[in-house]
């Protein structure tokens, strides 16, 4: 629902084995999730290259959500730790670029946590609404 004409665009990169299944569960359980979040399925959170995140923000996204399996549960054993290190690094770099690091969020969501997926999606929408649209100067 646009508020003050601002309809946030949030891109989500969700790992196939946990977070995406969690989002699926939210859907089949008829738990409402924020329509501002556009999920993209990747095989593992370790597959999310920083280029995906920066390109999304550059191309019009106001925020990016990364979601993977809980620590210890990654289908490929360590992809989520790599994602965690990259996320902390990206937040540091986003700060350096003068972009609020809260535009990037990382969550661990298991296949049974449809409710968590929904809750995270609404929280993210609200936070991005507070931050306002991401307007990049050339």
């Amino acid at each position: 629902m646009p508020e003050n004409g601002f309809n946030p665009k949030i891109v989500g990169f969700l790992c196939n084995w946990c977070a995406y299944s969690g989002a699926d569960l939210a859907g089949v359980s008829r738990i409402q999730s924020s329509p501002t979040l556009r999920p993209i399925r990747v095989m593992c959170s370790g597959r999310i290259d920083p280029g995906f995140v920066f390109t999304a923000l550059k191309s019009g996204a106001d925020g990016v959500l990364l979601a993977g399996c809980h620590p210890g549960d990654c289908h490929y054993s360590e992809g989520n730790y790599l994602c965690l290190r990259r996320t902390l690094m990206m937040k540091k770099l986003l700060g350096g670029f003068g972009i609020d690091e809260e535009r990037l969020r990382l969550e661990w969501i298991s296949a049974s946590e449809g409710d968590k997926y929904s809750k995270v999606s609404w929280e993210m929408e609200n936070r991005i609404r507070e931050l306002g649209p991401l307007e990049l100067k050339q």
Partner: peptide
Amino acid sequence: STFGRVQP
């Protein structure tokens, strides 16, 4: 770079 500059 992707952003080209630090945001003022």
